[in-house]
Design a protein around this nucleic acid. Sequence first.
RNA 1: CGGAGUGUGGCUCAGCCUGGUAGAGCACCUCGUUCGGGACGAGGGGGUCGCAGGUUCAAAUCCUGCCACUCCGACCA
Length: 465
Amino acid sequence: MRLVWPPVSTADPAQRIFMRLSRYFLPILREIPKEAEIASHRLMLRAGMIRQEAAGIYAFLPLGLRVLDKVCRIVREEQNRSGAIELLMPTIQSAELWRESGRYEAYGKEMLRFKDRHEREMLYGPTNEEMITEIFRSYVRSYKDLPLNLYHIQWKFRDEVRPRFGVMRGREFLMKDAYSFDLDFEGAKHSYNRMFVAYLRTFARMGLRSIPMVAESGPIGGNLSHEFIILADTGESEVFCHGDYLTFEVPGPDVDFDNAKALQAIVDKWTSLYAATSEKHDPSLFAKLGPGKGLSARGIEVGHIFYFGTKYSEPMKAIVTGPDGTDRPVHSGSYGIGPSRLVAAIIEAFHDDAGIKWPQSVAPFGAIILNLKQGGADTDPACERLYAELTAKGVDTLYHDLEERPGSKFATADLIGIPWQILVGPRGLAEGKVEVKRRADGTRELMSPADAVTRISQGSNLLYA
RNA sequence: CGGAGUGUGGCUCAGCCUGGUAGAGCACCUCGUUCGGGACGAGGGGGUCGCAGGUUCAAAUCCUGCCACUCCGACCA
């Protein structure tokens, strides 16, 4: 069961037809569903991205899936770049495994437990430390196979007492979880730093400014841990940090993840200033930051990294032989990012009253063509041509070809938040022009269709930055 | 898990208190007029009122039980 699909390139002619709105499945809601309290939940429902199937359990509809795929793609690329290796573990696990670590009893009612037909105790995985440790210990015996960082992107289930805020706080959620294995603390620290830097890059590529904050290690245990918080005015919790974090440079794509010293320098810099969630907040320290330097804002947790040492390797006997010939349990950490939650977090960071304003890199489509006079002798061919040319340039393009009034098309385009809108109407075409509107700032510009293609194809290719 | 609510057409809701055989707006279908910021007119389709009992001549409405969902609090990626 492959649950996350790579994004489909619309450059593939076989896919083109599905990007006409008349053949697509985009169930827009004009009225606001009453249960949705926060902006992202409201907008995801209205934009036809998700459908609630049970409390805290959602189906991703086509538009939502496209965004989720793009988020996962960035996560993957940055995990891979940092040296982590992807695999895929199952959603269902056996209780036996969890008894080994002692967490079967400890985890509580958040874990969904059930029995199969043979009365074997099973569970729907809330996380995978036990399983990855089991896999590791089955194959790895020598320090020569280290370091190792294995990750997967898989659905998890935590039976929250009170799910809310749509996919932001669902019971079923998609999670990237990585698990590192090293011979000693020094190695583990390097692995931790790899993830730390990969996370900075991952969120930055989604247009988000993330700030690492010292975190409680929580039920998973350990003593080296950071939460990655992104700032959004409508964020769930209050956070406090030094304002200079907003000016820190995010490591570029050329960062050398094998250079432990260089990585440590980056991590040191990004942990040098005050940054705390409200639980860890110390007002007296915060007050000492100096005039104008203390930043109090709203934030959303989008990632969490832990070092937990030998917490699982010891009870579960994940042992390797060191260079000196002695056996020892490996040092591990785990590193989570919630892609489904990120989709909502990105919306919290980028929206206005009219709808979503997707950052280029995760937008479900790069551009939308609005035919303001469907069936028009001049507008129809102009739209078809734009559509073909943009698609040929690799821009994911949605063609709004329904028989709707212009006002309705504008509203839909604004709602679903496609970064570039191309307005094709008789008025502009009379002068050989179309209007290009940027959703992010609302700016519009009249230009020839050829210039529009150039402008958009150049401005849309930020995914691989 | 404590507290508070809500279930009526695809969506938002009225009707329930004071029982009498189900409504509005939006959406949908047809026709016409419209057409650069969610048009207008006419006609039409669609609901065993969450489920199960009970009271009654009669239940969306009153009573009991169950289920689902939402909000506040404690808890979490």
